[in-house]
């Protein structure tokens, strides 16, 4: 009896969450799914139909998919390579009193709009920013803005805090005595890092990379602003399809495909990283 009533309570408590998820996540995806089988109306928009034509047309956005599938992992990797040493420094090197200040500094940029910060980068990378400074010291003809490099810089900058925090938390959880134990057993600091610190921080790394990767798959602002519109991601394709050509059925098919591709990649990734039994002791944060 008691058990039954408690399960009612659970249901009741979970109801708002379930309704929220249904209304804001599942329903929109269903709408998009239905649209993806429709036809483009004469004046733009959606005309009810059941056709696979939109999916058949997917190769038309193959380049965008390819660009995204190259840049999302590249951006994730670049952000990781910069975030890990930073997180390591924050978690293991800096004294605790200064740690809070530095952590705050990592978050501070989040207090202003992402767009404004990206615009700031347009000026920094533009002809009168870093290239002008380089010219000042004699290196001429460097172009940064509106190049894939600029997009990568923007991505690393924008996603760095998202990458730093999960890694920081997992590094901070690594017990100091484990490092001493490794040292004591004959492992040099470098080997200790490779054999103890790194593996134990992997759950944080995996989480951080996944968050950043998923968000990068849908990125469109950074390529538009720092890539000068010349770097075309699937996110940009979606913006154009919905807001410019108003081809909602095709946009929907592209969106559904993106979701599916993402689900496949993420589930493969999860299976690879979080092997059952292997890492039960190191939980995701």
């Amino acid at each position: 009896m008691a058990k039954k009533s408690s399960s009612y309570v659970t249901t009741l408590l979970l109801a708002p969450m379930a309704i929220w998820m249904t209304a804001l996540l599942i329903l929109p995806i269903l709408v998009v799914l239905v649209y993806s089988f429709g036809e483009l109306a004469e004046m733009g928009g959606y005309k009810p139909a059941f056709t696979l034509a939109q999916y058949a047309n997917l190769p038309a956005r193959l380049t965008a998919f390819k660009n995204t599938l190259v840049l999302a992992p590249a951006g994730t990797l670049a952000a990781f390579l910069i975030a890990y040493p930073l997180a390591y420094y924050l978690a293991r090197t800096v004294e605790p009193r200064r740690r809070m200040i530095l952590l705050t500094l990592v978050i501070v940029p989040f207090w202003t709009s992402f767009l404004i910060r990206t615009y700031a980068w347009m000026f920094i990378l533009g002809g009168r920013g870093i290239p002008a400074l380089l010219e000042f010291i004699g290196i001429e003809g460097v172009r940064l803005l509106n190049t894939p490099t600029a997009v990568l810089i923007g991505i690393v900058y924008g996603y760095l805090p998202l990458m730093v925090f999960p890694i920081f938390v997992s590094l901070e959880k690594v017990d100091e005595s484990l490092l001493e134990a490794s040292n004591d057993l004959g492992a040099s600091p470098v080997r200790t890092f490779l054999q103890v610190t790194l593996p134990l921080s992997l759950p944080g790394v995996a989480t951080a990379c996944m968050i950043v990767f998923i968000l990068l798959m849908g990125e469109f602002l950074i390529p538009a602003l720092l890539g000068g519109g010349k770097v075309f991601f699937i996110g940009n394709a979606l913006v154009d399809l919905f807001l410019q050509s108003r081809n909602w059925p095709f946009g929907s098919a592209v969106a559904i495909t993106l979701v599916v591709v993402m689900l496949v990649i993420v589930s493969l990734y999860m299976r690879m990283i979080f092997k059952p039994g292997k890492t039960q002791d190191v939980s995701m944060i």
Binding site: G44, A60, T63, A64, G229, F232, A237, Q244, S245, N247
Partner: peptide, 17 residues
């Protein structure tokens, strides 16, 4: 031109190129 899929695709290929 507004709803021409042809023009939309030209634009998409141009930007993706």
């Amino acid at each position: 031109t507004l709803t021409s899929p042809l023009r939309a695709e030209v634009m998409a290929r141009f930007k993706a190129a």
